[in-house]
Design a protein around this nucleic acid. Structure first.
Length: 481
RNA sequence: GUCCCCAUCGUCUAGCCCGGCCCAGGACACCGCCUUUUCACGGCGGCGACGCGGGUUCAAAUCCCGCUGGGGACGCCA
């Protein structure tokens, strides 16, 4: 790859939930490539979806990447000369460029309602063939468009894609990729709420931030021709495109929280060391060929990394191998580091403080501490002698209940006693569940015992990841059949 | 459904670009043995893959084509 200009790469997470292992994975490869080339890694927050936006998410993502040692050179927390680094703070820029496209007649206003589009999609689905916008508004005449705009009819701005021929680009790992334009529809660039879509914001920002290499996940391949069309519409130089394979669940589907823990917070709580996680992610699709070993550091990866050494099959994220690798790191941990980890991660101030009010009233002496409260520290509980299914319910009913609950808890933005309580109460009311057949099983699931501190406070202290993990585990292993 | 991407042990992968050194190497998991007062670690061994079919070639895991399989995309999500 030519190096006539400074390498600038970026990672662009969307603050909609957990700090995701997939984000860490893509960040790792961006980081390694940047470091190796004396380039810069930019972190850009893609918060253009008002519905999915979660306030607490950005901070958790930043914290997660920092935990892994993937420090960015520019970003919302560290600043930089190409800011702001949150797309929600760059709205005027997107408006300006959308206007440019309108003026160049590369884009147009579309007044179609979401209902009409949904109907059209439905029809297309029945008839088979491709799904896509029928370009109804593309051929509206100017006076009509003007009239509708004056009338304040809600509209979006769409990109005029070529209607025939094919679009292609070079993927640095796969070679040329060509897609027929009849497969691509006129992408929405500006939504009716005035926010840009990914496609516009992404291209504008990559250009403005002088990004040289777009290193992102494979799921973006099919929309890359749209991005290329945008670059060309603006007359901008295109970056190089590199699409990384997608991390997979055991069943080979794209990794997802329903089938696999994906939160960095979860793995941290589980006691996976950051260097283990980095090493493990580095093993996904890449291998350390300099020497024949699987254990290597971030620095070692930086020094011998080559994109051409990436294999393109989608790697399954295997918990067992992760654990084994972690063991390798623990075995060789210097005493100092070991103690530090116990102090700061296992018995951290924050965990101890959160359980203090719950345990202090229930302790005759400190030697009972682990016997009574181990569930605050262990991840996997034993349910052998507990009956989790009350008499009046079946296992599959319980499964439905707790899966639904898990989903609701997942929606909580800021995890606190108040928010958890609110979700729990409204769910109980919604489903008209008797507290007896709901709270006791939940208590058993979350603590592994019948005597525990108050449930809601316990949930708050356990944290979202642990609660969700236990619910999921029980649904998968006990509420079966 | 349409398009795109991918294809070596159950899993992560080496080998593939530049065909022969590969009846395919390593690691996880699993099984057995050894070590050991226990458990773990460790050591040794076992199980286990080039998806299928056609070409090209003296020779194919490696190159070409087709099929099959898996995945992704097709949103006023990213």
């Amino acid at each position: 790859m030519s190096s006539d200009k400074t390498v600038r790469v970026r990672v662009a997470p969307s603050p909609t939930g957990d700090p995701h292992v997939g984000t860490a994975y893509v960040t790792l490869f961006n980081y390694v490539f940047a470091k190796q080339n004396g380039g810069k890694l930019i972190l850009r927050v893609e918060d253009t979806d008002q519905n999915r936006y979660r306030k607490a998410s950005e901070e958790r993502i930043l914290k997660g990447l920092k935990w892994l040692g993937l420090q960015c050179d520019e970003g919302p927390d560290v600043g930089g000369s190409y800011g702001p680094y949150r797309q929600s703070e760059r709205l005027p820029l997107y408006k300006k460029y959308a206007k440019t496209l309108l003026e160049k007649e590369k884009a147009y206003h579309c007044f179609c309602t979401q209902e009409r589009l949904a109907e059209a999609r439905e029809t297309q689905k029945k008839e088979g063939g491709r799904f896509g916008y029928d370009r109804h508004c593309r051929y509206l005449d100017k006076s009509e468009v003007e009239k509708k705009l004056q009338g304040g009819i809600s509209s979006v701005i769409r990109l005029k894609m070529p209607t025939e021929g094919e679009g292609s680009f070079i993927d640095e790992l796969r070679g040329p990729i060509t897609i027929d334009y009849n497969q691509l529809d006129d992408q929405i660039l500006m939504k009716s709420d005035g926010f840009p879509t990914y496609h516009l914001a992404n291209v504008v920002d990559d250009h403005e931030m002088k990004i040289t290499h777009v290193i992102r996940a494979e799921e973006w391949i099919s929309s890359t021709p749209k991005h290329v069309t945008l670059y060309e519409a603006f007359g901008w130089e295109k970056p190089q495109f590199i699409h990384l394979p997608l991390l997979r669940n055991t069943d080979k589907s794209k990794i997802s929280k329903r089938k696999n823990p994906v939160s960095l917070d979860f793995y941290r709580r589980k006691g996976i060391l950051p260097e283990t996680m980095i090493n493990f992610l580095g093993l996904m699709g890449w291998s350390f060929k300099a020497e024949e070993r699987e254990k290597f550091s971030l620095e070692e990866m930086v020094s011998s990394f080559k994109f051409s050494d990436i294999s393109l099959g989608g790697p399954v994220f295997d918990q067992k191998k992760l654990s084994w690798l972690n063991q390798q790191y623990i075995q060789t941990m210097p005493q100092e580091k070991f103690l530090k980890h116990c102090r700061e991660e296992m018995f951290s101030e924050s965990i101890l403080k959160s359980i203090y009010p719950l345990v202090r009233e229930r302790l005759d002496s400190f030697d009972e501490f682990f016997e009574k409260f181990s569930f605050f520290f262990t991840l996997d509980l034993k349910y052998e002698n507990l009956s989790l299914v009350p008499k009046e319910k079946t296992a599959s009913e319980m499964k439905t209940i707790f899966l639904e609950l898990s989903l609701l808890l997942d929606e909580i933005d800021i995890w606190s006693l108040a928010t958890v309580t609110q979700v729990m109460n409204s769910y109980l009311k919604d489903k008209a569940l008797k507290p007896k057949e709901f709270y006791m099983p939940l208590r058993l699931i979350l603590t592994g015992r019948q005597d525990s501190p108050p449930l809601l406070e316990t949930m708050e202290a356990l944290g979202r990841d642990v609660v969700r993990y236990r619910l999921q585990w029980v649904c998968d292993h006990i509420f079966t059949g």
